[in-house]
Design a protein around this nucleic acid. Sequence first.
DNA 1: CATGAATGAGGTTTCATTCAT
DNA 2: TATGAATGAAACCTCATTCAT
Lengths: 186, 186, 186, 186
Amino acid sequence: MAKIEDKETAILKAAIAVFAERGFWNTPTSLISKTARVAEGTLFNYFATKDDLINAVYLEIKRELAKELMGSFHARETFRDKMRDNWNRYIEWGLRNPEKFNVLQQISTSFKLDADVKAQGMEPFAEIERLARESIAKGEIHDYPVEYLGALMDTQTAMTVRLMAMNPQADYQRIGFEILWNGVAK
Amino acid sequence: MAKIEDKETAILKAAIAVFAERGFWNTPTSLISKTARVAEGTLFNYFATKDDLINAVYLEIKRELAKELMGSFHARETFRDKMRDNWNRYIEWGLRNPEKFNVLQQISTSFKLDADVKAQGMEPFAEIERLARESIAKGEIHDYPVEYLGALMDTQTAMTVRLMAMNPQADYQRIGFEILWNGVAK
Amino acid sequence: MAKIEDKETAILKAAIAVFAERGFWNTPTSLISKTARVAEGTLFNYFATKDDLINAVYLEIKRELAKELMGSFHARETFRDKMRDNWNRYIEWGLRNPEKFNVLQQISTSFKLDADVKAQGMEPFAEIERLARESIAKGEIHDYPVEYLGALMDTQTAMTVRLMAMNPQADYQRIGFEILWNGVAK
Amino acid sequence: MAKIEDKETAILKAAIAVFAERGFWNTPTSLISKTARVAEGTLFNYFATKDDLINAVYLEIKRELAKELMGSFHARETFRDKMRDNWNRYIEWGLRNPEKFNVLQQISTSFKLDADVKAQGMEPFAEIERLARESIAKGEIHDYPVEYLGALMDTQTAMTVRLMAMNPQADYQRIGFEILWNGVAK
DNA sequence: CATGAATGAGGTTTCATTCAT
DNA sequence: TATGAATGAAACCTCATTCAT
């Protein structure tokens, strides 16, 4: 049969859309395949189980986000600027992709990911922690555990996206970073 | 343990225990009733639907947490001390009640609560936002939107609990508050 | 709800009927519940899995057969008479209960029974082997391994039932026993 | 092993192997084609349906067994020797080819073969029944219905193979024939 | 003839909910 | 009010078969 469109991609897209709307626990695989305009069985040709599909969705989104963020570290000079760039890109990506953002949050907090998938998803943050260590060495920011800084950055960004989505005209993006930076800077 | 226990309470307790272990989407009501040593049908005498039960669990935990935190605002003098007291009580409660903390997070992020239940659950934060407004008026902290401050306090506390649960000997509790306070103080 | 009729029995009976007609591998549980005039889910209240049901069917039939045969050993005097009585009862039961006989054969040859169920099903033959040992000691029959004699008795009886079912007017019942006895007698 | 092997043969061999291991009801055609290192669709170029394949497997094995047994009738002089030769060859073939033996039993007892295939599979026994008739005429053995004798020979041989496979050091092969012969001889 | 992606009916099992007792 | 057997829709997944390449 003609591979007119990539079915795997169609399934992933459909999964993100319906997961965002109904929550992934509440979404039958039949709805995903229907949304993807694909037979019910086809889904399982690409993803052996629903859990595998969820892992794949997570990884797909994380990879897209990582690509979005990766550039930020090299485009700026100071650690503060790198961090702010990262902050801004994350938030803007989240606002541009509310479904993906939403699904990522869902999966992160309510699903037991495969260990290797989880590890892959964490890579992007390795870089930010490395930069934080450098900055600590230079005496720019306080000597806090970098894993705490990474987690803080992550949760605060996510929270900011959520608030901005509900209240678009507020100035949370600038304020949030100001608070974050003042919190850690010497 | 009380020998004769209200069945409703028994069901709520059982629900929290099994939700914490398996996730509430993954938990059949039959397991809850079994854990509560109550007939399957009995559960539905107290909670018309599973969704109602989830709402009730949420409210139950939120109320307990609120009671824990409420006192903090009056025991201290300055806003900083009130805030720190609140921070500490939240974290210590979370560490003492990992199941309840866990279930609260689950429900908050992956369940569509009834509007009125959600509203009731937010009450405790009204107080903290009121205090923040006072403090802003006194010029102690920056003039940031109080709803942002409330949300920040909430997510950062929760994140800190999670990290401390995984790494108990770390000093996250003190550090976290330091960052938070430095972030907002003038 | 009124327990007007024993549903468990109804399900077992229905299973035997449809297994006989279509083979148990080819029989959906939905057809069993439909035949038993019971909801699809009800079947699983009584038998956790289809495999459990098959084990139960096997045991049910074996027990009935055992009851039928058990008496035979005491009603007669000589070993030959006991054996012939057993032979006759088995065959007549098989002809009277073609469905049960058929299903028993099916399960015995094409299903991996639970170890304990298998063991329970074998009990009746312990007795015949014990009697064979006695008879050997008395010098009535040849000193052949009793487990071989038991298996021979079993397969030859079953084969005879099958042939008689296809060709009812033949004299296989008498002939078969004659061959069997002459084969083992001194 | 032949490097280039007929795909049809490869499929038949693979089917026997996996049927023996998992039972043919439990074996998906996809596993057969995979085992045969052939595409899923290819199997259906040779066998229109799974049922057709099962029929073909049956016939293939029966033919091999027939070839093995056919010679026996001419290599010996007396009917007893022919019969014993047949008995021995069957048993030894069964022990040498446990998978084929197993699959043959499975299909014979749990599958509705096509009428013509069944007829073809029975041919070898026509010969033994013819010889039995001769022997009866000569007064060597009792005048029993030859179809009963054929069926007896078949089931008893099969049972003996099964027992020997489980208990290889026992003397069932010799004993079994002794019983069989004494049963029918005058 | 060979391939393997695609199909969708159908299989077993789960589970929230009902209701007669 | 408490019970738990009964229900049946729906979930996930399998697999024989088709067919465009």
